[in-house]
């Protein structure tokens, strides 16, 4: 799965803001942002990755266990799907 074209992530004053740069991507009444961990996963998803790879990356980078990483990746991906930010 991968971040859909037309979305970019920018860090502004410690806030990770998702910006829609195409007419289809633009959501006029919402500001979407991520925490630091979410931004970490977003950057992996920009290149494309599946759930196991995302969970493994979380474990390498952060102090967390496999079960927590897998569960949180699931929840996070559902959040992104809910806003139609990812393909796959």
């Amino acid at each position: 799965m991968k971040i859909k074209p037309g979305y970019i992530l920018r860090e502004v004053m410690d806030i990770f803001v998702i910006i829609g740069v195409g007419s289809e991507a633009y959501s006029p009444n919402e500001i979407l942002s991520l925490n630091e961990t979410g931004a970490f996963l977003w950057r992996i998803l920009e290149k494309g990755a599946e759930k196991p790879e995302l969970a493994a990356a979380l474990q390498r980078e952060y102090d967390t266990d496999p079960q927590t990483a897998e569960r949180d990746v699931d929840v996070f991906l559902e959040m992104l799907r809910g806003k139609a930010l990812i393909d796959g």
């Binding site: 009444n29 979407l32 942002s33 979410g38 979380l58 952060y62 102090d63 996070f76 959040m79």
Partner: peptide
């Protein structure tokens, strides 16, 4: 190894006429 915080997506909604 960084301190872990669950990844989150924040959605702030505002009225169109605030812009």
């Amino acid at each position: 190894m960084k301190k872990y915080e669950a990844p989150e997506l924040f959605v702030d909604t505002f009225a169109a006429d605030t812009m």
